[in-house]
């Protein structure tokens, strides 16, 4: 018993200064803890080194990119940025704008359509709900390639080639089941009394949804928006299929054009524009970390 109390006390003391699990600390002294930090820092440094090196290189004059492996340019030079900005058919801000348009529409579409479907699955009773829900979960794991060619044919018939419609319209029809699932999980956790109270107050299902449930779902909506932003901003395959006019290119398609550039003089501008293309993701990542970490833990999204 004495041992038990001792362990309890010790574990409580540990739990107070950090939120770790009990046994992990049992055998860890300051030396092993220090060692752990060393390992983690080393792994982190290896992982981040390429990114930081790219950032540093984007400010180095082209001659220096390869002569110098340091992460601190000897002089800060913006030539790569001004050159890269105008290296392609169109100035880079056009591509940024194009990406922004596609991303914004996709976010709106996902938020609107997925929250509607999620509300039905999470908080309504209707005939065929279970099989439909199973079907929805099934589409989660469906590889998109089996849909690819017919979808291409459909969009071609509709005359949507070289427009953003094939990239955007499916999102208004809740084709991304991941976000439905994420919101279902969130909505299920809200107390069911909310719906009852709203009903007693005379709200129909639509008012209950808009006035009561949706405002409470802001965290889930934020998670959806951030994930949509990141995946759409990076999306390469869809634009590759549907956009051929370079004036419509999104950022990833624009960057692809640097792929063919050979020789060291081309690397600097490519790095500069790569940094420009990654900056919004890193910004969103820092701003929305809380939601990302939660969202990924519930759905296993990338």
């Amino acid at each position: 018993m004495a041992l038990m109390t001792q362990i309890r006390q010790r574990s409580r003391a540990i739990a107070e200064d950090s939120e770790d699990s009990y046994f992990e600390k049992l055998g860890s002294n300051s030396r092993t803890r220090f060692l752990r930090h060393v390992i983690l820092c080393a792994v982190g440094a290896i992982m981040l080194y390429p990114l930081l090196w790219m950032l540093a290189s984007s400010f180095k004059p082209s001659s220096e990119v390869f002569a110098d492996l340091s992460l601190w340019p000897s002089e800060w030079d913006l030539t790569n940025y001004t050159e890269g900005w105008n290296a392609l058919n169109h100035p880079f801000h056009l591509y940024l704008w194009n990406s922004f348009v596609v991303v914004a529409l996709t976010i709106v579409g996902n938020l609107a359509s997925c929250s509607l479907a999620a509300y039905a699955f999470a908080r309504m009773q209707f005939f065929g709900k279970k099989p439909l829900f199973a079907l929805m979960l099934g589409t989660l794991m469906l590889p998109g390639h089996v849909l690819l060619i017919p979808q291409y044919v459909i969009f071609n018939l509709l005359g949507w080639m070289n427009t953003y419609l094939p990239l955007v319209v499916p999102n208004f029809l809740a084709t991304n089941a991941f976000f439905i699932f994420l919101m279902v999980q969130f909505m299920r956790a809200l107390p069911s009394e909310l719906d009852d109270a709203a009903r007693i107050d005379g709200c129909g299902p639509f008012r209950t949804f808009f006035r009561v449930i949706l405002p409470l779902c802001v965290p889930a909506l934020a998670t959806t928006a951030i994930f949509t932003f990141i995946s759409t901003w990076n999306e390469f395959f869809g634009p590759l299929l549907y956009l051929t006019d370079s004036a419509l290119y999104t950022v990833p398609l624009a960057l692809r054009q640097f792929m063919d550039s050979e020789g060291q003089s081309a690397w600097g501008p490519m790095f500069a524009m790569s940094v420009v293309s990654l900056a919004p993701i890193i910004g969103f990542f820092i701003a929305g970390q809380k939601y990302l970490i939660k969202g990924i833990a519930t759905t296993g999204l990338k």
């Binding site: 509607l116 009773q125 209707f126 439909l132 929805m136 639509f206």
Partner: peptide, 10 residues
């Protein structure tokens, strides 16, 4: 009916 209205886009 309400349920399918919400599900319509999906």
């Amino acid at each position: 009916r309400a349920g399918y209205a919400f599900l319509a886009p999906w």
